[in-house]
């Protein structure tokens, strides 16, 4: 069963490493709240397989002045698409 992982804290606490240990091929990762700081340089996401789609919540990027700074791999999504993503994947695992 596929999972959408949401990450809501900044890179400082290294949570992405724990998350990646559970990420399977085909899973997606959505950065929300302070998690969106993962999406701008220095890029911390090079170790994430190309099998895993990466998303970030547009509202949180906008709020933090990051929308124009994010890596090309990240797809910005609004709340409507956030809801759809939780349906596209079989379950949601939140990391905070």
């Amino acid at each position: 069963m596929s999972a959408l992982h949401t990450i809501s804290v900044s890179p400082t606490n290294g949570l992405i490493n724990s998350c990646l240990r559970l990420v399977c091929p085909g899973d997606g990762i959505l950065f929300i709240q302070d998690g969106v700081y993962h999406c701008c340089p220095p890029c911390l996401l090079d170790s994430v397989s190309q099998d895993n789609a990466l998303f970030a919540l547009r509202e949180d990027l906008l709020a933090r002045g990051l929308l124009c700074k994010i890596s090309e791999r990240i797809t910005p999504v609004g709340f409507g698409r956030f809801v759809e993503l939780t349906i596209d994947y079989d379950k949601v695992i939140s990391w905070s």
């Binding site: 069963m1 999972a3 240990r21 559970l22 399977c24 379950k91 695992i93 905070s96």
Partner: peptide, 17 residues
């Protein structure tokens, strides 16, 4: 690592607080 990954993959619900 592989067993942890499999555990998450086969669970219906994962609650991670």
């Amino acid at each position: 690592v592989e067993q942890v990954r499999q555990l998450a993959a086969r669970s219906d619900v994962v609650i991670n607080l």
